[in-house]
């Protein structure tokens, strides 16, 4: 009971600290999305280009790995140990971040999409050379949301795993990653096999199968990333 209480307290405190940390991360994301919205409607002579929904995915795919690179670093983890926390909780909070941040980012992109539409309606009422079309169906929206989510989670999970190892075992991880990249560049058979694997993953007849494949990769990444953090010392 006492242990449960300590655990709950520590988890609440840890999540609170990540909430505080990620307010600025979210601010940056909002800034990027606002910038894209403004450039589309105020600065550019053409409002064509990808909508906020796709822009949300692209921004997330870049920002989430950066966040993972930061939160797995030794200095950041040291700061988290300022308050009581154990390594399981740390991993759990990171997994929660990887699972929750993409939802928030994608939901925010929906909000921006509505703002874009509002901006389009307003522009329509004042400019006779402006036109817009709603190219979204219910199905494509739900499938797109789910796919964007799992892609962000998967990329976030893989980055988290790689950097969880990297910061703990810099030389070994660099050697493995370097060898992998060199093999990809110089060994044709290896490259072909890797591309086949990528093709196998992404060539899926249905969104459900792709979702499952990416979920499996994410779970493996979580498991692999857990090992170095569980064993790490805080230096």
């Amino acid at each position: 009971m006492l242990s449960q209480n300590s655990r709950l307290r520590a988890m609440k405190s840890l999540l609170y600290s990540y909430y505080v940390d990620f307010k600025s991360f979210y601010g940056i994301y909002i800034g990027i999305m606002t910038g894209l919205l403004l450039s589309k409607f105020a600065l550019s002579s053409s409002a064509s280009g990808s909508s906020s929904l796709s822009a949300g995915l692209v921004s997330g795919v870049f920002m989430l790995p950066i966040a993972m690179i930061i939160i797995t670093s030794n200095s950041e983890l040291l700061k988290k140990f300022s308050f009581p926390v154990d390594r399981n909780m740390l991993v759990l909070s990171h997994i929660i971040l990887i699972l929750v941040l993409p939802v928030i980012m994608l939901l925010t992109s929906c909000g921006f999409h509505l703002l874009e539409t509002l901006a389009a309606e307003l522009t329509l009422s004042v400019a006779e050379n402006f036109f817009y079309t709603w190219v979204i169906t219910k199905d494509s929206f739900l499938v797109g949301f789910a796919m964007s989510y799992i892609i962000m989670v998967c990329i976030g999970g893989i980055t988290w795993m790689v950097f969880s190892w990297f910061y703990r075992h810099k030389i070994a991880t660099s050697v493995v990653c370097g060898t992998f990249l060199l093999a990809l560049v110089y060994l044709r058979d290896f490259r072909d096999a890797f591309l086949k694997l990528i093709n196998f993953i992404f060539y899926s007849p249905t969104p459900g199968i792709l979702f499952l494949k990416l979920s499996a990769i994410t779970l493996i990444s979580f498991a692999a990333g857990y090992i170095p953090i569980k064993r790490m010392e805080v230096k």
Binding site: S48, S50, G144
Partner: peptide, 23 residues
């Protein structure tokens, strides 16, 4: 000059043939 805005769905759905054709 004309300006056109397409409120597009998530571009990622185009990796599926069905949605690509739909779009």
């Amino acid at each position: 000059p004309v300006r056109n805005y397409m409120a597009e769905t998530f571009g990622i759905v185009r990796i599926f043939e069905h949605y690509d054709e739909l779009m």
